[in-house]
C-alpha cells in the first residue's frame, strides 16, 4: 500500500518537474521582446477597448503612444485628462489638458415635431435605412431612429426614447469617445465641449433645406434665418447651408440666441434655471436701442464736426 503511495508521489513529482522545464524552455524560446512601458501604459488605460481613440483597443493605443514622439499625438477620450496625465508620467512627458467632450444629438425631430409619412420595415439599422431612402419624415437630414448609435456605445450611455424616437445621451456615462458619432450615417451626433458644469448651448438641427422646406418637414428645424448670428455678441455663431452652428469654444453661454430662435432649434442644457425668454429678449432690445442711439449720436457728432 505504502509503496503505491510513494511511487505515485514520485511519478507525479517527476512529471511536474519535466513539464515545468519544458514550459520554461518554450517560454524562453518564444519570448517576444517588448517595450515594458507598453504594459505599464496599458495598465492605466480604462480597458474598455472602445476604439474611441482611433486604435483597435487599449493595447493598440498603448503601443502607438509609446512609439509616438509625444503623448499629445494620441488622446484617450474615455480616460480623459487623468489617464493622459498618468500615461505622460510613465513616458516622461507633460500632458496638455484637453476640455472634456460629450456626445450631443443635433436633432429635435420628435414624433410631434416631425410627422411621419413613411414606415420602415427592413433590418433595424440606420445604415441600411440611410442607404435606402431619406427617412420616415419630410426631413432628409435628421435622426433615423434605428439606434445604430445605441449599439455602438460601449458604455451604455445612449438609449432610445420611445416617446420622441430620438436617442438620449446619459452625460454621466458618456465618455466622449465618439463611437456613436462615427456610427451615425446622418452625422446627427456631434462631440462638443462638455462646458462649465455641463452647461452648453447648441443648435439641435442639421437640416440643410431652405427655411420653408425645413419648417414644413419639422416644427423644430433650424431654418437658417440668421437671427441667432445677429444676436450673438461673441461671434460664436455662423450660418452656412441654411444651418446655424455655435462654436462651443467661443460661446459664452449667454443664451441670447436660444431666446431669439423662432423655431426653438437652439437648446441650452445643464443650466440651473430655465430660460426666461422675455427677460432676455427685453435685454437684447434695450441693448440694441442703446446701440442704435449711440450710433445715431456718433453720426450726429460726425455731422457736427
Amino acid at each position: 500500500m505504502l509503496k503505491i503511495v510513494i511511487w505515485t508521489v514520485i511519478t507525479v513529482t517527476a512529471l511536474g518537474l519535466v513539464l515545468a522545464v519544458v514550459l520554461y524552455l518554450v517560454a524562453r524560446r518564444f519570448k517576444v521582446e517588448e517595450d515594458p512601458r507598453i504594459d505599464e501604459v496599458e495598465k492605466v488605460m480604462p480597458g474598455a477597448n472602445c476604439g474611441g481613440c482611433g486604435f483597435a483597443g487599449c493595447r493598440a493605443f498603448a503601443e502607438a503612444t509609446v512609439k509616438a514622439a509625444s503623448p499629445d499625438e494620441n488622446f484617450c477620450p474615455v480616460g480623459g485628462n487623468d489617464v493622459m496625465a498618468k500615461v505622460a508620467a510613465i513616458l516622461g512627458f507633460e500632458a496638455k489638458a484637453k476640455a472634456p467632450m460629450v456626445a450631443v444629438v443635433r436633432c429635435n425631430g420628435t414624433c410631434e415635431n416631425r410627422p411621419r409619412i413613411n414606415e420602415y420595415g427592413g433590418y433595424p439599422s440606420c445604415k441600411v435605412k440611410a442607404a435606402l431612402y431619406s427617412g420616415d419624415t419630410g426631413c432628409a437630414f435628421g435622426c433615423l431612429g434605428c439606434g445604430d448609435c445605441v449599439a455602438a456605445c460601449s458604455f451604455g450611455a445612449l438609449s432610445m426614447d420611445p416617446e420622441t424616437g430620438l436617442p438620449v445621451v446619459d452625460e454621466e456615462k458618456c465618455t466622449g469617445c465618439g463611437a456613436c458619432s462615427k456610427a451615425c450615417p446622418k452625422g446627427v451626433i456631434e462631440l462638443r465641449g462638455k462646458g462649465p458644469r455641463g452647461m452648453r448651448v447648441y443648435v439641435s438641427c442639421i437640416n440643410k433645406d431652405k427655411g420653408p422646406a425645413a419648417k414644413k418637414a419639422c416644427a423644430a428645424a433650424c431654418i437658417g434665418c440668421g437671427i441667432c448670428a445677429k444676436t450673438c455678441t461673441h461671434d460664436a455663431i455662423t450660418v452656412a447651408d441654411n444651418i446655424a452652428y455655435i462654436d462651443f469654444a467661443k460661446c459664452k453661454l449667454c443664451r441670447e440666441c436660444e431666446a431669439m430662435c423662432p423655431t426653438g432649434a437652439i437648446h441650452g442644457v445643464g443650466f440651473p434655471k430655465p430660460l426666461d425668454k422675455d427677460a432676455v429678449k427685453e435685454r437684447i432690445r434695450k441693448r440694441n436701442e442703446a446701440a442704435k442711439a449711440a450710433a445715431a449720436a456718433e453720426v450726429k457728432k460726425e455731422v457736427e464736426a
Binding site: 413613411n118 435606402l132 431612402y133 431619406s134 427617412g135 419630410g138 432628409a140
Partner: peptide, 8 residues
C-alpha cells in the same frame, strides 16, 4: 426635388 426615396 425629392426622388422616390426622398433624396433631393
Amino acid at each position: 426635388r425629392k426622388d422616390l426615396a426622398g433624396n433631393p
